[in-house]
Simulated scan of single mutants.
Amino acid sequence: MIINNNIQSVTSLYGTSQATSSYRARSKAAESARDEVEISEAGQNFSEMLQKLREEPEVRQDKVEYYSKAIANGTYQVSAENIAAAMLGQRI
């Protein structure tokens, strides 16, 4: 599913950001005897967004039902141009 691929991409970028933050945290720890962790607003937003995406169902049942009924009724129409563009990997 496209969403899963995007989550993996964002997660890998977030991991890179985490590594940089980890380095900064270690140098601050060397300066003081007390360890502290600060999560940026962007990190908090990412965490909230990731949680919401994980709560979403894997399959959007409403869309499945809609297209299943349209196909069964014979009302689902796809243009030949759209099919050809999808086969060639182009966007219309």
Rank of each mutant, 00 (worst) to 15 (best):
M1V: 10
M1E: 07
I2S: 12
I2R: 08
I2T: 11
I2C: 14
I3A: 11
N4E: 11
N4C: 09
N5D: 15
N5P: 04
N6C: 15
I7S: 08
I7K: 06
Q8T: 12
Q8D: 13
V10R: 09
T11M: 09
T11H: 08
T11A: 10
S12A: 10
S12R: 10
L13S: 15
L13H: 14
Y14H: 09
G15Y: 11
G15A: 15
T16I: 15
T16F: 12
T16K: 14
T16H: 12
S17T: 10
T20L: 13
T20V: 12
S22K: 09
Y23R: 11
R24C: 10
R24Q: 14
A25G: 05
R26W: 09
R26I: 07
S27I: 07
S27E: 08
K28H: 02
K28Q: 05
K28Y: 02
A29N: 06
A29R: 04
A29T: 01
A29I: 01
A29D: 03
A30N: 08
R34S: 00
R34W: 01
D35Q: 06
D35P: 02
E36R: 01
E36N: 01
I39N: 05
S40E: 02
S40I: 02
E41P: 02
E41R: 09
G43D: 01
E48N: 12
E48D: 13
M49N: 12
M49L: 11
L50F: 06
Q51L: 09
Q51F: 09
Q51K: 13
K52Q: 14
L53E: 09
L53F: 05
L53I: 05
R54K: 11
R54D: 09
R54V: 04
E55V: 01
E56K: 06
P57T: 04
P57Q: 04
V59G: 02
V59K: 01
R60W: 12
R60G: 10
Q61L: 13
Q61C: 08
Q61I: 11
D62I: 08
D62A: 07
D62K: 04
K63C: 10
Y66W: 13
Y67W: 02
Y67Q: 03
S68A: 10
S68K: 06
S68W: 07
K69E: 08
A70I: 00
I71K: 07
I71V: 05
I71A: 06
I71R: 08
A72Q: 08
A72R: 06
A72F: 06
N73R: 12
N73D: 06
N73M: 07
G74N: 02
G74Y: 01
Y76W: 07
S79I: 00
S79K: 04
S79Y: 02
A80G: 10
A80E: 15
A80L: 15
A80S: 14
A80Y: 14
A84W: 01
A84S: 10
A85N: 00
M87N: 15
M87D: 09
M87W: 07
L88K: 03
L88R: 01
G89V: 00
G89L: 03
